[in-house]
Design a protein around this nucleic acid. Structure first.
Lengths: 126, 126
DNA sequence: TACACCTTTTACAAAACTTTTACAAGACCC
DNA sequence: GGGTCTTGTAAAAGTTTTGTAAAAGGTGTA
């Protein structure tokens, strides 16, 4: 708890079925295991998550995470994205999407449409 | 916490399976053996323990244990952490965690998850 | 003063993290 | 498909932070 609550509606955390990101403590965990993100990795993921569902341009990421003004050519963003994906393991494909020539987009985990194996009332041959 | 007891519910001591810290008498023992902490060592450990589970920044530690205002470059904190760890012996890894570029965090001792060999009520073929 | 004990500094080693490099792989357009 | 631009990747290089041993500095006390 910071001394002043800036915005009552400001989300303290992101959470879905697998990923949990605590903005206050700057920690992240996947399936209840601490993800052990480095500072830059966290900043990057946090910024993407704060724009869930929206593309964040490379330009914006480089500016807000690195403070790089435009026109700087570097691969550091890509390298960090890669390490983030690695730590997200099997879910990386679900979460981080590349938008060619634009940037990246974070997508929340959505439970796969459950092919409901309800009691097979209608099972044939029962 | 300064000279005044702010909260009536303020814990008098910290205790887990191995470590016991008495805030009132400012003493600590590990597996029932007095730890023989020096003043600064005690203050440091106490501050960390008063924030169990939370990261305490280097800045905060330097301010509250040493009274150092910001922007002072010193390795004295690290040296004290080292001596604390030494005295905590085999448990140091469990208790004191380094958060790179941020500070340190005290974690309580947790008994290893007991692989409960409960009666296999649901065992097949029983 | 001499001693014992504690704290801080110093100087360097080691570890953690970030950025660059160099090239492979993929995407887009003709 | 060929050409070009963008992204992915592994490894090296660079930077910053932390760990450590030893020396130096303080403080209290007999």
């Amino acid at each position: 708890m910071g001394p002043i609550s800036i915005s009552p509606t400001h989300e303290q955390r992101y959470r879905d079925q697998h990923l949990d990101l605590d903005f206050e403590h700057k920690t992240a965990s996947l399936d209840a295991r601490p993800l052990g993100l480095t500072r830059k990795e966290y900043d990057l993921l946090a910024l993407l998550i704060q724009n869930v569902g929206d593309v964040v341009t490379r330009e914006a990421l480089l500016l807000r995470v690195w403070g790089y003004s435009n026109q700087i050519r570097t691969r550091t963003l890509d390298v960090h994205i890669r390490r983030l994906r690695k730590k997200l393991g099997a879910y990386s494909g679900v979460y981080i999407e590349t938008i060619f020539s634009v940037g990246y987009r974070f997508q929340p985990f959505r439970a796969p449409k459950n092919v409901q194996h309800l009691p097979s009332v209608m099972a044939i041959g029962a």
